[in-house]
Amino acid sequence: MVWLDGRKLDMSKNSSGLATLRKLGKPMVPEQVNDLAVLLETFRIFEVDVAKARMPSAVAVSGTLAADAGNLASFLAYLKQSHEPIFDQILDDMRYILPGFAGLHLTPIGGAAAGMVVEMEERGLGGRTPLAAASFGTIRALALLAMLHDPDPPRLTCVEEVDHGLHPYALDRLVERLRDASQRTQMLVATHSPALVNRLRSDELIVCERDPATGASIIPAIDAATVRAMAAESDLLLGELWFSGCLGGVPS
């Protein structure tokens, strides 16, 4: 429950509070509060729902990728239609990540309810593989790349376990795309993979841990300058340093 100027505003315990911010309205608070609510609402917590992403999209073309990538097919159709060089770059990345990948086919679904279906073409395999039959890692990689190449991303994008389901060889390309995407949006991604951390620079790594006594989060557990000095002194990669326990963020 929130009180403002003696007025009670009901708010669910599970609410993010954004809707309440909007309820305040112009008479009570400056416009900046509304602007802040709008900004917060645009932040993308990207968590691929593979089961949904592998299904045909319910609409043919969509310019906004859903936070669960549930409309992956229609977003890819949008990129192909309106940003073909970006779509081609996604195909190029998929060929790097997925040996045998040849291309994507986007087919509109006819009938009363328009939609879009994605099929994969693979070298050495006859015919096309519907996305519904593709592997977990393939779908997740495609969804991640679509998000990372989004030409109009929100101001902040967060991804949990960004490397989940990806082949370690794909991590070089993933890190490169994260760096590219971070020119357009603030990327905040979580990982527990030393293989991924090995590919990062010290200023790209924030080690997080919990205070064992209080349970409070300690972020960062170690400052970037110290991490840089430790890496230089030891000649170890950041993932090796983190996994060794030197940087914190490991069970004590």
Binding site: T226, A229, M230, A231, E233, S234, D235, L236, S244
Partner: peptide
């Protein structure tokens, strides 16, 4: 030598 590398890193702090 790998252990030594970790120790050198730790000696920073």
């Amino acid at each position: 030598s790998r252990i030594a590398a970790v120790v050198r890193a730790e000696r920073i702090r």
